[in-house]
């Protein structure tokens, strides 16, 4: 797919534009990491400080008794892992049923399931809040996991459908002719074959669950607060506690960065919910 060399000027110009946008994307994050190593005064220095003695005290404070950020990281981890496990399992099962079977109402049911991916959390959050209060699910990890899975099961359905559609039907038909039941076919033939797709889906679910705000914010108050949601508490009535805020942000970004490294190759498919193969 080699193309003839474009005119030089155009080449340099377009490269410059790309570099400029690339830098614009990364610089704020870099700036945030720097800020997390600054004192409260250095953060607002004029001119902006690029060279200074890094100060890790805000990080040590983070894990100290006052902030106890590890608690929120643990919450986030449990919630994100729980949500992705639940969503990918149930989403794959539903995707299998919807791609392989047709039964009365399956099309409408599928439309509804898929559309739930786009249901704004704000629509259901207040009734859910009342419901959770009634059932004692408020401020529990399980409550957040269940609530997150309401948009991540549909997300998994979207994505797993795409992976399942890539799998030739003849494979599962062969299994059934060979004497396997639907469940056996799913467990022994389908699941191993779509395992890579499930890993990708799970990683996306992890990221979305980790980053989710409204549900985690309204449905938790103390013991199940997630790491990103905890950030809001650095905003006091008067001012924002910037050093701790930024170090907490950086820490809460680490799991996401790991997922980013893994998911890079699958971004197009994941973000387009399987609509576009990357």
């Amino acid at each position: 797919m080699t193309r003839k060399t474009p005119r030089r000027i155009g080449w340099y110009l377009s490269a410059a534009v790309l570099v400029a946008f690339g830098v614009t994307s990364v610089f704020p994050i870099f700036w945030m990491i720097l800020a997390s190593l600054k004192s409260a005064i250095e953060i607002w220095n004029r001119p902006p400080l690029f060279i200074f003695t890094p100060n890790f005290s805000s990080y040590t404070d983070l894990f100290g008794p006052d902030i106890n950020y590890q608690k929120f990281l643990t919450n986030s981890l449990i919630i994100a892992v729980g949500t992705s496990a639940l969503s990918v399992t149930l989403g794959s099962m539903a995707a299998y049923a919807f791609t392989r079977g047709k039964f009365w109402g399956s099309k409408s049911l599928q439309m509804w399931f898929l559309s739930l991916k786009f249901l704004p959390s704000i629509v259901i959050i207040f009734p859910l809040f009342l419901e959770y209060r009634y059932f004692g699910l408020m401020d529990t990890q399980l409550g957040v996991i269940l609530a997150h899975s309401t948009f991540l099961i549909p997300f998994s359905l979207w994505l797993m459908k795409a992976y399942l559609q890539d799998l030739p039907r003849a494979i599962d038909e062969a299994a059934m002719v060979d004497g396997a039941s639907r469940l056996e076919t799913f467990r022994k033939i389908i699941l191993p074959l779509v395992a890579p797709g499930m890993a990708v889906t799970a990683a996306f679910c992890f990221v979305f669950s980790w980053n989710e705000f409204i549900i985690a914010y309204i449905l938790t108050s103390n013991s199940a607060v997630t790491a990103p949601t905890r950030l809001t508490q650095f905003r006091g009535l008067e001012a924002i506690d910037w050093p701790h805020l930024f170090s907490a942000e950086v820490v809460s970004l680490i799991p996401l960065f790991i997922m980013f490294l893994f998911l890079q190759r699958f971004l197009v498919r994941g973000l387009s919910l399987g609509a576009v193969k990357g």
């Binding site: 003849a170 494979i171 038909e173 059934m176 002719v177 060979d178 396997a180 039941s181 074959l193």
Partner: peptide
């Protein structure tokens, strides 16, 4: 259901199980 009919089928695409060895394919 298919599995209770005791018929075997050979598919145009062969439909071998890609994640299994030939032995496991035959054993399935």
């Amino acid at each position: 259901p298919t599995r209770d009919r005791d018929v075997a089928m050979v598919f145009q695409s062969y439909a071998l199980y890609p994640h299994m060895t030939i032995y496991e394919n035959l054993a399935f």
